Simulated scan of single mutants.
Amino acid sequence: MQIELKGRKAIVTGSTAGIGRSIAAGLARAGASVVINGRGAERVDAALRELRALLPDADFTGVVADVSTPEGSAALEAQVKDADILVNNAGTAHLNGFFEQKDSEWLDLFQLNVMSGVRAARHYVPGMVKRGWGRVVFISSESAVMIPKEMIDYGVTKTAQLAVSRGLAELVGGTGVTVNAVLPGPTRSEILGNWMKSTAEEQGITQVEAEQNFLKTMRPTTLINRFTTTDEIANMVVYICSEQATGTTGAALRVDGGVIRSIP
């Protein structure tokens, strides 16, 4: 299968590292011009330098904007007026205790993980509908289905993304715009990778051993018995952004290594 995205403009929020950066690289390899986004100029500039070195023929631009806020979302929209592909990847997670958490922590996480994608879709999707073609992808998580007791707030935000994704797909049905969600499982991304690295150092073991311990205790239903790579997540995203994926919309697509124990 040859995926061709030349002439398409893509925005990937939260794309200076991890899954977002791999998605940006994958879309660029397929020919799309890609907007890199992050909160700080230093990280955006570093990502641009490294991606341009990796893919010298690709078209990358960078936008510094904190999309967890309405002001930051507006700044992104002002600098990038329209897009053919929108990947709502910006998000984070924190270990926490449910009974100790403050309302402000819940609301801050919801702003980043959910409202950043809501605001971006509200701005960019009408243009896609008008042009008769578009792709919207929400990067959710297997935690949307299997809510982690150590991060209930995170699971709630990821479930909310599935609801937004499906509802938006219903809203734009028949227009040539598809909307889907992707559910990664435990992935060697920046956030989880750093956590595993820190755990390994504290316990005097290797990172691979720390990952195996995590899977055995926290995600024992894994079928691949390892963390997925960011490129494996990106491969799914690039496909559903392609012309070949016109029949896939309103879906929650797993790249979870078989963690979720259900058929649909």
Rank of each mutant, 00 (worst) to 15 (best):
I3H: 06
G7P: 12
K9H: 07
A10S: 02
A17C: 08
G20S: 06
R21Y: 11
S22D: 13
G26N: 09
L27P: 12
A28H: 15
V34R: 04
N37H: 11
R39T: 15
G40F: 13
G40S: 15
R43H: 08
R43I: 00
V44S: 09
E50Q: 15
L54W: 05
G62R: 05
V67S: 14
T69C: 10
T69Y: 09
E77N: 08
A78S: 15
Q79S: 13
L86W: 06
G91T: 10
N96L: 09
F98L: 13
F99V: 12
Q101H: 05
K102A: 15
D103A: 14
W106I: 11
D108A: 15
V114A: 08
V114K: 03
M115C: 11
P126S: 09
V129M: 14
V136I: 10
V137Q: 09
F138I: 02
S141H: 03
S143G: 06
V145T: 06
V145C: 00
M146F: 01
P148F: 09
K149F: 05
G155L: 04
V156F: 05
A163R: 06
V164D: 04
L168P: 03
E170G: 11
V172L: 08
G174Q: 11
T175I: 09
G176F: 12
V177Q: 11
N180G: 14
P184H: 03
R188D: 03
N194S: 13
E202N: 10
Q203G: 01
I205V: 14
T206I: 00
Q207V: 07
E209R: 01
A210L: 07
L215Q: 00
R219D: 01
P220T: 03
I224E: 08
R226Y: 03
R226Q: 12
T228V: 05
T229D: 07
T229I: 02
D231I: 05
D231K: 12
E232G: 03
A234G: 07
A234Q: 06
M236Y: 01
V237A: 04
V238C: 01
Q244K: 12
T248W: 04
T249G: 13
L253Y: 02
D256G: 00
G257N: 02
G258C: 06
